[in-house]
């Protein structure tokens, strides 16, 4: 089954945003261009557009998040939508309510869009298959599977620094690829945009099986993986990976895969360093790199708002409203 099929309407336009996999280059370019045109909004005195006036966006966070939740909230508000944020991690599901019941209840509150984060891979797609047809579903991270808006804000950040010629770029993704939805979505996005030199750098314990089939080159050595790259995407390493026998210690990980100014020297001189946050300083990266001249980490956060505004206006613009149908 084409992974894109459920997120596209009959005309091939985005009606949900669940995964990058299966989307065409033009879908991504449209999102990037729309986001680019929206970045000006934040600099205005009145930071609001009327695009989603009268619409209700429900943030359904079944897993805790600060950055993603707040930027989605802000994006919806800047588009004049009404926003409902439900932290379900501490809500009904702990009382035994099923995921589908929770969704049906929020649906009954007449929402137009669900922004979903869930710890299980496939959760956003599952919800998209079961909501009423006028509701758009945006995936804000599902298990290890996908985090497509993060990938798009990463692409926007890269394009703003490196220009639109993705085919000329070398990009290294370093760290816990196995558990990372960000890595999977970044890999798909880079491939769709034409980047043929995507590298993953990690020990075998942090790589999925047959990772090469995702369209990447595999490195176990950081110096080799970083050689001549234009972009370094560092991933967060969860502390609990130490207890699962995936790594011997944080010290050894930092020594082998931690990004320092010295190790960055093998990359291109104008290489940028990215991280989806939150950062473990001194675990995956040295503070000097985080705060250094090549870090674009805070720009990523800013770009996240524009990208989420873009995806919201594109998907809701493509949804038929129930009133118009009637």
């Amino acid at each position: 089954m084409n992974p894109a099929s459920i997120q596209l309407d009959a005309q091939g336009r985005l009606k949900h945003f669940l995964t990058i996999e299966g989307l065409k280059r033009q879908h991504l370019i449209d999102i990037l261009d729309t986001a680019e045109s929206l970045t000006g909004v934040a600099e205005r005195r009145v930071k609001k557009l009327p695009t989603l006036r009268g619409k209700t966006v429900a943030n359904l966070f079944f897993e805790s998040s600060t950055r993603t939740r707040t930027t989605f909230e802000l994006a919806a508000k800047r588009l004049s939508a009404d926003v409902l944020t439900v932290n379900i991690a501490t809500s009904s599901t702990s009382k035994g309510e099923t995921l589908l019941d929770t969704v049906r209840n929020i649906e009954a509150m007449q929402c137009d869009m669900f922004v979903v984060r869930h710890a299980a891979s496939g959760a956003a797609e599952f919800i998209a298959r079961h909501v009423r047809p006028h509701i758009a579903v945006l995936n804000a991270g599902d298990g290890r599977h996908a985090h497509p808006t993060q990938a798009m804000l990463d692409m926007l950040t890269i394009r703003r620094h490196k220009g639109p010629a993705f085919q000329d770029l070398r990009v290294a993704i370093v760290g816990d690829i196995l558990h990372s939805r960000v890595a999977r979505s970044d890999i798909h996005a880079l491939n769709v945009l034409g980047c043929a030199n995507v590298r993953v750098v990690a020990p075998r314990t942090l790589l999925p099986p047959e990772v090469g089939t995702l369209g990447v080159q595999v490195f176990h050595d950081l110096d080799q993986g970083l050689r001549d790259v234009d972009v370094v995407i560092m991933l967060r390493l969860q502390r609990e990976r130490m207890s699962g026998a995936l790594l011997p210690s944080a010290q050894e990980y930092y020594q082998q895969y931690g990004l320092t100014e010295e190790r960055l020297a093998v990359a291109r001189p104008d290489a940028i360093v990215m991280h989806p946050g939150p950062i473990n300083r001194g675990v995956e990266m040295a503070s000097a790199v985080v705060d250094g001249p090549r870090s674009v980490i805070l720009e990523q956060v800013t770009n996240g708002i524009a990208v989420r505004m873009a995806v919201m206006s594109i998907t809701l613009g493509n949804q038929s409203s129930p009133a118009e149908d009637a």
């Binding site: 996999e21 298990g143 599977h145 996908a146 939805r181 999977r184 999925p208 099986p209 047959e210 995702l214």
Partner: peptide, 15 residues
């Protein structure tokens, strides 16, 4: 199965 489908879908694998 701990193979390419699990890798793609982000599912925990059984080798």
């Amino acid at each position: 199965h701990d193979g390419q489908i699990a890798a793609r879908l982000g599912l925990a694998g059984i080798p």
